[in-house]
Amino acid sequence: MTGPRDGGREAVGEQSASRRGRFGRWRDQAIALGWLALVWNLLWGQISWANLASGLLVGSAVLVFFPLPAVTFGGRLRPWALLVFASRFAAELVSASLHVARIAVQPGCRPRGAIIGVELRVRTDLNMALTAEAVTLVPGTLVLEMDRESATLYLHVLDTHGPAELVAARERTLALERRIVRAVGSAAELRRIDNPPVEKGTSP
């Protein structure tokens, strides 16, 4: 009894997904156009109607002549979580910078490093890109490679003193991902983050 109903719901969902896909694509383009127009206004140093019009013109020319693969933004912005992410990001940026600066000026210190792989839990391109950017900017880590299939980031960690710090770096990266998903992720991604499926042993 549940079978057909589920199937029907799935078909309906698929249909609405495709309609939302077209609408979403249109919406993505509009958002990109808005950002480009804003950048144009900032470049001119003042926001005026003439700048807005020329910005929209230039922005649409850029979007038409340099089409990029669409990055669908499936989630929604949560201002409070975004604020939490931004403040933690700033704090980690400062502490990581001071740490690296201290290593740099400390005499006779030859920092050791390590390369670790961290598997992200949310596999969208947007999440991978955002996490990789943030990870490269913050604590003592630098993204070397990304595996898009398994959503794994390979990081170079600076100044390690043993396996415990590698575990700590991995956890820091996952915590960063959680904050990013809380800030911009969709509800399904948020569920994935908050109660991760226990599949370490079963999944290949």
């Binding site: 940026l93 910078s97 001071l98 690296v100 740099a104 030859r110 920092p111 900017l137 003592g140 630098l142």
Partner: peptide, 21 residues
């Protein structure tokens, strides 16, 4: 850091983080 660190990857660390901040 860029001058003192022993290999390219460590130098990248110095070049990205303190410099961006």
């Amino acid at each position: 850091g860029v001058l003192r660190f022993p290999d390219s990857l460590s130098r990248m660390h110095a070049a990205t983080k303190p410099q961006v901040l």
